[in-house]
Amino acid sequence: MAILEVNDLSITFKQYTNGLKKKYIKVISSLNISVEAGEILAVVGASGSGKSLLAHAILGILPSNAKVSGTIKFNGEILTSARQEALRGREIALVPQSVNYLDPLMRVGKQVRTSVKKGNEAKAQREVFERYRLKSDVDKMYPFQLSGGMARRTLLSTAMVSGARVIIADEPTPGLDPAVINEALNHFRDVADNGNAVMLITHDIESALKIADKIAVLYAGSTVEVAPANNFTGNGEKLRHPYSKGLWRALPQNEFIPIPGSQPHPSTLPSGCLFEPRCVKATLECTKAQPVMRELRNGIVRCIHAT
């Protein structure tokens, strides 16, 4: 059974334009993912595809002008606002993308120690700092005294000592040196192998493939494919969705072939398949309605032409 499950998630933001006219922009629609205990799910996609918003919706930290529909379940139970608040930082921990999540008025060692729920707080903080190559004097520093890489390692440390059953890592490795990146990725793998679940949000498919069990591909605020990580190989012949194949082939280490066009803005989404304007397989039927997710070859895909 999935420890974390997101079904038909939609997020709409209320905005006011000139003249105080109110409008609604749907930035995520019919998004579906799940991750089981012992598993790492990597969530990939271009900037603006909804990856970070997905994480914030799970944690219940979206801004007040956001309207959310669909269901999010943790351990089989729907996450209400009250339950999100109770589980946040305890059972579900976030490694945020922005280092601004650090409290500027608290020494970083204390921030890490406050996340320890079991065992000796000081010992756990020392060990995690050693693991991520943070010197002993760093614990007395304030966030403004840290380099960008040190701040990211501190955020990573905070999540790792929490003992959470689900860790959501939102772009956790930019600015880190290769040795620390590999250490962090291996530790995520250890966390999953010990029966927990990890959702790794990243642009770096190559790094994700080192540790992930499944890859969820997002496009324009929707899931287009969830596939086993070992499907990302060769020229993408094992993948199901045209966008997934294009994304894979566009990587520098592969064919470096760009996908024509660009991802649509949330205010100008197509009425049918969101990828239809850029898809070489598109037909008239693709313009009529957004395809539903369906199972195919040990994965799931949102495309009527996928085989």
Rank of each mutant, 00 (worst) to 15 (best):
A124G: 09
D139Q: 13
F188S: 02
H241N: 14
A42R: 00
A55H: 11
L251P: 01
L54C: 04
L218D: 00
K118D: 02
S34W: 07
S52T: 15
G76R: 05
I304K: 11
L239Y: 12
V191W: 11
V280N: 04
N186W: 12
L146C: 03
L54P: 05
S115V: 03
T17D: 10
G109W: 02
G60L: 13
P228S: 09
S10E: 10
H305D: 12
S10D: 08
I25F: 07
G19M: 14
I78T: 15
I40C: 00
G109V: 03
P63L: 13
Q84Y: 04
K51N: 06
N231A: 15
L284F: 05
K118Q: 08
L87A: 01
N230M: 02
V6M: 03
R152A: 05
V43Q: 06
E77G: 02
D8T: 05
S147R: 07
A192F: 04
A197F: 09
P63R: 08
N194W: 01
I211Y: 02
T233D: 15
E5D: 13
I40S: 01
N7H: 07
L247C: 01
V112S: 01
L156G: 11
N100P: 00
G60C: 10
N75H: 02
V99P: 00
T223E: 07
R152H: 04
S115G: 02
G109K: 01
T268W: 00
G19L: 12
L41W: 05
T158Q: 08
D213W: 06
G60T: 14
S136N: 09
E130G: 06
A197T: 09
T283G: 13
V226K: 10
H265F: 12
N298Y: 12
E85D: 09
L4T: 05
S64C: 01
A86H: 10
R90Y: 06
I181S: 01
I215Q: 11
S207I: 02
A306G: 11
L269E: 03
P270V: 08
T80Q: 06
V226Q: 03
E39Y: 06
I168A: 02
A197H: 02
A93R: 05
T223L: 12
A37P: 00
Q84G: 03
G221I: 04
T12H: 03
P291W: 02
K21I: 12
V35L: 04
N120V: 07
